[in-house]
Amino acid sequence: MPTTTQLEHLLREAALRVTRPRVAVLAAVYEHPHADTDAIIGVVRTQLGEVSHQAVYDVLRALTAADLVRRIQPSGSVARYESRVGDNHHHVVCRTCGAIADVDCAVSATPCLTASDDHGFAIDEAEVTYWGVCPACSTTTAAITAR
C-alpha cells in the first residue's frame, strides 16, 4: 500500500490536482482491489466523513482516465476498480459469491494480444475472464452436499 505522499505523487504525475477525495479514493482502491463503487464510498466516508456518491464517481472516472486505476466489469457484475494497471493480467470470478482474483498471463508478456485474425484492428488490450467456484464456496458446497 503506497503512503499518502506516494499517492499524491501519482496524482501529480498524472496531471491531476491533489485533493482529499482523490487521495482517499485512490487509497481505497489500493487497499481493496476489485471493490465496487459502494464499497469504495464506504471506505472513503470512514476517512473523510460525508462525501457524495457523485464525488466518488467523478474521482473514479478521473483516476480511470488517467490510468491510475482500472475499471473492470465481469458479466453480470457491477463495475469494480483495481490499482493494478499497465500490465496484461486477467481475472477469475467465483460464480457463487462473486469474489475476484488476478490471474497473470499464462505464456509470454502479451500472448492474448496476438489474435488469430485482427481484422485490421490495432489491438492494444485483451480481456480474459475465467469463471469457476472459489475455494471457500467449494468447501461450503461440499459441506452442504455431504449432509
Results as ranks from 00 to 15, higher is better:
Val59Arg: 07
Val51Gly: 07
Leu48Gly: 06
Leu68Thr: 00
Ala146Arg: 14
Pro74Phe: 13
Asp124Glu: 07
Asp117Arg: 13
Leu60Ile: 00
Ala136Phe: 05
His119Trp: 14
Ser52Ile: 01
His32Leu: 11
Thr114Pro: 00
Tyr130Gln: 11
Cys134Met: 11
Leu68Trp: 06
Cys137Gly: 05
Ser77Met: 15
His9Thr: 09
Thr110Gln: 04
Thr141Leu: 11
Thr145Leu: 01
Thr141Ile: 08
Thr139Ile: 02
Ile40Cys: 06
Val128Arg: 03
Glu31Lys: 09
Ala39Pro: 01
Thr145Tyr: 04
Gln54Met: 10
Ile100Asn: 01
Arg84Met: 12
Gly120Thr: 05
Gln47Pro: 00
Thr129Cys: 03
Val85Tyr: 11
Thr4Trp: 06
Asn88Arg: 07
Ala65Val: 03
Ala66Val: 12
Glu13Thr: 08
Arg71Gly: 07
Leu48His: 09
Arg12Asp: 01
Arg45Ser: 05
Ser108His: 04
Tyr57Trp: 02
Asp87Glu: 14
Ser83Trp: 10
His53Val: 07
Gly98Phe: 04
Gln6Arg: 14
His53Arg: 15
Cys134Glu: 07
Glu50Phe: 08
Ile72Thr: 12
Ala146Met: 09
Asp118Phe: 06
Ala109Trp: 01
Ala27Ser: 09
Gly42Lys: 02
Ser108Thr: 09
Gly86Lys: 12
Val59Ile: 01
Val93Thr: 13
Trp131Tyr: 14
Ala55Met: 08
Asp104Met: 01
Arg17Cys: 01
Gly120Pro: 09
Ala39Ser: 06
Thr46Leu: 12
Thr129Ser: 05
Ala142Lys: 13
Thr110Asn: 05
Ser77Glu: 15
Gly86Leu: 10
Phe121Asn: 05
Ala62Trp: 02
His34Asn: 10
Asp58Gly: 02
Ala115Tyr: 00
Asp104Ile: 00
Pro21Val: 06
Thr96Lys: 11
Val43Met: 04
Trp131Met: 13
Gly98Tyr: 09
Thr141Phe: 05
Ala126Pro: 00
Gln47Phe: 01
Gly76His: 12
Asp124Arg: 05
Val92Arg: 15
Ala14Asn: 07
Ile72Pro: 05
Val92Phe: 07
Ala109His: 05
Leu16Glu: 02
Thr114Glu: 03
His90Ser: 05
Ala27Arg: 15
Ile123Met: 00
Asn88Lys: 02
Ser116Arg: 07
Ala136Leu: 06
Tyr30Trp: 11
Cys94Met: 08
Val59Gln: 10
Ala24Asn: 05
Asp102Trp: 08
Thr129Glu: 09
Gln6Trp: 08
Val78Phe: 11
Arg61Met: 02
Trp131Thr: 11
Pro2Thr: 03
Gly42Cys: 02
Ala35Arg: 02
Thr64Gln: 15
Tyr81His: 14
Ile123Cys: 02
Val78Asn: 14
Thr110Arg: 05
Glu82Trp: 01
Val78Gly: 11
Cys112Gly: 03
Ala126Asp: 01
Tyr57Pro: 00
Asp87Phe: 01
Val85Ser: 10
His9Asn: 09
Ile100Asp: 00
Glu8Tyr: 04
Thr145Trp: 01
Ala15Ser: 12
Glu127Tyr: 10
